[in-house]
Write a protein that binds this DNA or RNA. Structure first.
Lengths: 385, 385
DNA sequence: TATCTTCCGCCGATCATCGAACAAAGAGGG
DNA sequence: CCCTCTTTGTTCGATGATCGGCGGAAGATA
């Protein structure tokens, strides 16, 4: 129902969002009677979803008992499957990280190998956190390629041989599994962690390739085929000679991606193989590398300028390996966006480096799982059962 | 509340969407008891929102009484304020047009003049439809510039002198007024009218300038400052000599907009002043005009190819004056999009000319008003009162 | 210590919803 | 033509959820 939001799920949403920490808050926000709220809260405590902590500050009368998510007894996992690494984070229901690990692992080893690895790490982390496997409620996973979100199957991922159409969720039988593109979960992680108040955010990952996660109205926009945000193959002007692996030329990725920068540096006599090498050179003070990074920033900025006009975000977050030298990358990006976008769209626009860093992906994947579990529909089912 | 959707507003939503036409349908869809549904329907009939029409087809038992929106007693207005015209449509609550008119009118005359004109037209149309002014429940308006949707005030519109920050809703005291950008309401009109099933749609208006309305998850995306969709100033490659009124160069609008095409034709010895002139020349068989339009299509396609990668829509609709020669414009657009966008994104993508035509804007503006009035929140308020 | 304020649980009153029973209206069959 | 079956719609008592007042709890203030 639309009016008088007051189901157990809605009540929990208010608690988990931090909008309400006491029964009085809940009564005021929902419009329900205090007695009704008490009943709801009792049910949520009964289900092990909420706990009471000792009194809070008094405002002149009896101090209210604080309510918060019950962080024991449940566990959620966020998995970041990268091209060459695998990171697993174990989180409690509030989004706090309980334990975390990262290992080098090639996604090209195929789904069975990678998912088996995730499984063993999961057991280790659960042991470390002192929770049984049965406490695991949901698992979110980000993978480096397009995914059909509804089914959790990769959709012709270019750099994940053997994964096409593989039903990832079926590998984990006893818990809900949500799979999404890695950039999407990074965007989610960054949004929830650093910019919870904003409605429209773009997260741009500048690594070997270039991708973008889109948060619209606070929710991920995946598009019709789940391929939204694939900005690496948008054309930039003046580089028709730059051939791309996709078969076209002048793609953003072929001009400003980490791999492209490394290749260009190598051609110019400074050996570099990956985006990380480029970053290292910049940090070492190599002026050529620095110039290339700034130029890359301008090219990225050209594409983003168009997207700012189109999408009108409040925040653009720059992440990925190349953002380690963000002071140089951002200079070019900002310069170009402010020159090429409309004043109305840029006036309140922030362009910032990622604040969440390395584990934005694992964190975002975990949050995907947690938010699914905490959705009012799901909670109402749990409480009634 | 989230579970068991069954407030009067939700019931009406099902009726107005055509998902349910009988009480039984409603009981089945909402999960509520038949008696409860009857009670809800009675309340809606009482409020004048729903009417019963005589029996439907029997399926072996008593034939159900059909329910539909009560189309008498209410009226809604959709106003399309263009640069040089003003169109007003009077609609009933089901979205059917009762009466309509269009007059030449310069938006540069300023808000008082234009809104006074709207007022007189409104009275004429109401008289024509035989409804009193008091029947007017809500009014939607599309204007050729950015608008702060929440307040209904134009936000530094470049071609609407005197309108900046003018509080349009205050001019119509006795009814709710919603103001939006013209391209947004066109997108809404086209979506509701021709593609109600799709989630993600782009409506591209190619007229004097070039703009884009965005439908995401079935709702308009307006962006942080309400300036989303302003694609006319996205850079196209290889035209750094084309200066734009915005101060930059190589803007899509300056290369492929109707005004730019007319100017270019004139330079080449074929006099043309506006986009309409260009269309006329193409229709008269002028090969030069035709070549320019095709070329414009390719430039628009280049920008749209990027947006397809970014946004991943299901449908792109081409409207505006230039779409009158859409067979030529679309050829270039399709060619470029299919060449420059990712296969995953283009595989299920339709690129089609507007099916709604001239009054997409007035229609969309009216629908904006109607959908606001029919929103569950508003209906619940009405029924309880 | 007395009083005030706020918080929280208890409990009877109230209200919305349900579901069974019944009436209505047509289909189909003998 | 009449009888039975099916589906629809309404009526009404039963049920269960919500409300709001009351009183106890717990701290602030004086």
């Amino acid at each position: 129902m639309t009016p008088a939001p007051g189901s157990p799920g809605d009540v929990l949403t208010l608690i988990s969002a931090g909008s309400a920490t006491t029964r009085s808050d809940l009564a005021r926000l929902t419009g329900l009677a205090r007695s009704t709220i008490s009943q709801r809260v009792d049910a949520l405590i009964e289900s092990g979803l909420v706990q009471e902590t000792e009194s809070g500050e008094s405002t002149g009368g009896r101090p209210p008992r604080q309510l918060r998510l019950h962080t024991d007894g449940h566990a959620f996992a966020g998995v970041d499957v990268g091209a060459t690494h695998c990171r697993v984070a174990l989180m409690d229901i509030s989004g706090e990280v309980l334990a975390e690990c990262e290992d080098p692992l090639l996604v090209t080893e195929g789904p069975e190998t990678v998912l088996a690895h995730v499984d063993t790490r999961l057991d280790l982390l659960l042991a470390e956190a002192g929770r049984p496997r049965s406490a695991l409620r949901a698992l979110g996973m980000g993978v480096p390629g397009p995914v059909e979100f509804a089914t959790g199957r990769p959709n012709n991922p270019p750099i994940m041989p053997g994964w096409n159409d593989y039903p990832i969720p079926e590998h984990f039988e006893d818990c809900v599994v949500l799979v999404d593109n890695d950039v999407n979960v990074m965007a989610l992680g960054e949004h929830r962690n650093a910019f919870p108040g904003t409605s429209h955010l773009l997260f741009v990952k500048v690594g070997t390739g270039i991708g973008c996660g889109i948060v619209a109205e606070g929710r991920l926009h995946r598009g019709a085929q789940g391929s939204a945000g694939d900005i690496g193959h948008i054309r930039v002007s003046g580089h028709d000679d730059a051939g791309c692996r996709c078969g076209n030329s002048a793609c953003l990725e072929a001009v400003a991606g980490g791999a492209a920068l490394a290749r260009r540096l190598t051609e110019l006599g400074v050996p570099a193989a990956t985006g990380a090498d480029v970053v290292a050179l910049v940090q070492a003070g190599d002026t050529l590398a620095l110039r290339l990074v700034r130029e890359a920033g301008r090219h990225i900025g050209e594409v983003l300028a168009g997207l700012v006009n189109f999408f009108n975000p409040e925040v653009i977050v720059i992440g990925g390996v190349l953002s380690r030298v963000h002071e140089h990358l951002l200079a070019g990006i900002r310069e170009t966006i402010y020159r090429r976008s409309l004043p109305l769209a840029t006036h309140h626009l922030s362009i910032v480096p990622s604040r969440t860093g390395e584990d934005a992906a694992a964190l975002g994947a975990g949050l995907l799982a947690i938010e699914h579990y905490l959705s009012p529909d799901n909670i109402n089912k749990l409480v009634n059962a």
